[in-house]
Design a protein around this nucleic acid. Structure first.
Lengths: 334, 334
DNA sequence: AGCTAATTGTTTGAGCGTTACCATGGATGT
DNA sequence: ACATCCATGGTAACGCTCAAACAATTAGCT
């Protein structure tokens, strides 16, 4: 690595002259500035980021902690965050909590020593189940800003969410408007904050509809066990099902496959609505109708909020930004 | 952030005493060590990473540059890299090149100023098409180690690859052994080094088989255009197709869907083999047979090679590690 | 012309948080 | 009285920036 010192020696000037010249200081003569810049370019001088960070107490780096990169939603959120951060001159250090509280604690701990200017995170499943957020508060107490997204907790920090309740409320209302009489909700995320909200939206929509006589049916599928078996089971125990709302990323696709296999006509006999990113490529036939999450907007918003927060650190009021969802009707709804 | 200076003031000792005490120096009395450690724990002292990095010229951080996080293979590789790196006490700064040369250049540039100890990367499509690797050589010339994986280039650095040629050679031989007479290869990655190798494996297997009379058929599907249309077209123009080898991550699934729709019996009339991670959850029926890539092993190997390289930086011989693949026969082959 | 005052261009020095090396001072042993 | 040991303190350095000091030139004024 080329340093200011080396440039200074070659040019027979002091280190600070070189520093000022490269920063276009008024104090330095045009002539010197040019000489310095030429040599710097020639030797491909790059200011050492560690020295800069130490001096300025800013790292231009964010810590991003997500539960699972293999989930398409989080992968896309990560993509959006990286894109916007990089556009604004920030780097991101990525940690995957793998849905575990301990890994999440460890990641926050390891990066809270001046490695990052702030965090963007979505909370691990275990953390939500145990409702244990002390490790997060500990960081906030140290005045390191955190922006939570999607899976949030009751903490005073900025947040980016979607209207989970409203989204599944609308989707359920759509199924009702099609005249569906046996609408089942399936989910592999009932333990999560977002899972509960989405389920409540479904329940509320059914409850409000006076013509709908059936009790609501909520099927919990277990990610670790056989998703396909759980869904086959659903068709066995609910042969009259004519509407399915999947509130996670994958079970809607499985339900569609299984329904077609069982001989259901989709969407004539049965409507299915999934939950996903807006333009996910699902190669199903017919194409799955979904509640679309606008993941790029979510990721971008987290970065914007965090940068805002860094620019006015003392403000104590926190923002919760809600990103719009859309119900996109494709081939699995009438 | 609590600093050594603050601890020193509270304990009425010098900064260097505190530093030595925390590092269990022999020079410091047991008694002092204990007092220092207690206060450090109580105030949650964390050594400032930037200061440490500046001093030691080591960051304990890797730059990871991947072309696309939404591709399941790269998402899983990233997961594996993060997991192994974090296990060994390293953080990773993630950059997504989005298959663009310029973003790749920029990412290398931005992080080569002392931000990372080395890079792990897979080359962007545009970079491979233009065969432009000067930006990578520039980093290697500065003695910053790079480990390339999957999509590699002809550079003197460590690499982790799979036996792309051998994998599709084996898969094609399997299709031949089933007695298939019209085997088509489909690919959306013909521009990539790995795409070419895989295609060559297919060609070689056909060529070697004296009973196989047909000319090889290689279908290029364009990711940006309608993949489904290209594949429908394949069935139109090759009605006698009885074997399909997909050498990318997605086109095999699409081909299966379309084949079933066309009324092909799979695997009776038609065998299909895809290319993917070992335990990818594809909810198809029948389940897709695949060449499995052992992505976790690939990611882990990149980290191991990079750490090895850092420990013996002067060695000039470079390692290329080849990770085994498996042909996993599920429901779409006989 | 002769002096101070202002301007310009540069260097010096301190400090960000650490650690490594060397110095210091007090107690102990012979 | 002097060498030896022990516990601790001081200083410099990593690469950088910023305030303050300084030297050299130019301008302003009697």
């Amino acid at each position: 690595m080329v340093t200011l010192k080396q440039l200074a020696e070659q040019l027979n000037v002091s280190v600070s002259t070189v520093s000022k010249a490269l920063n276009n200081s008024e104090e330095i003569s045009k002539d010197t500035i040019q000489r310095v810049k030429e040599l710097a370019k020639h030797l491909n001088y790059q200011p050492n980021r560690m020295a800069l960070s130490l001096k300025s107490n800013k790292t231009k780096t964010f810590g991003v902690i997500i539960p699972n990169v293999l989930n398409h939603f989080f992968a896309k959120a990560l993509y959006a965050i990286e894109k916007e951060a990089s556009r604004q001159g920030f780097s991101i250090i990525t940690c995957v909590s793998n849905e575990l509280l301990e890994k999440e604690e460890q990641s926050l701990q390891v990066l809270s020593n001046g490695s990052v200017d702030g965090f963007i995170m979505s909370i691990a499943e275990e953390t939500q189940v145990k409702n244990s957020t002390d490790h997060i508060s500990l960081i906030l107490d140290q005045d390191i800003p955190i922006v939570l997204f999607d899976r949030v907790a009751d903490l005073s920090c900025d947040k980016v969410i979607i209207d989970d309740f409203g989204a599944s409320y609308e989707a359920t209302k759509h199924l009702l408007s099609e005249g569906r009489k046996h609408i089942v909700l399936i989910s592999d995320i009932e333990e999560l904050s977002v899972g509960k909200l989405r389920t409540n939206g479904y329940l509320k929509a059914l409850e409000e509809n006076i013509d709908y006589k059936q009790p609501p049916i909520v099927i919990h599928v277990n990610k670790d066990n056989d998703v396909e078996a759980s869904i086959e089971n659903l068709f066995m125990s609910n042969p009259k099902v004519d509407g399915i709302l999947s509130i996670d990323n994958t079970s809607g696709v499985v339900a569609l496959h299984k329904a077609l296999k069982k001989g259901f006509k989709v969407p004539e006999d049965l409507s299915i609505i999934g939950f996903s990113d807006e333009n996910v490529l699902v190669f199903t036939d017919p194409k799955l109708s979904t509640i679309s999450q606008h993941t790029m907007d979510i990721g971008k918003a987290t970065v914007e909020l965090l940068i805002d927060r860094l620019n006015k650190k003392n403000t104590t009021t926190h923002v919760t930004k809600t990103i719009k969802t859309n119900l996109i009707l494709r081939g699995t709804t009438k």
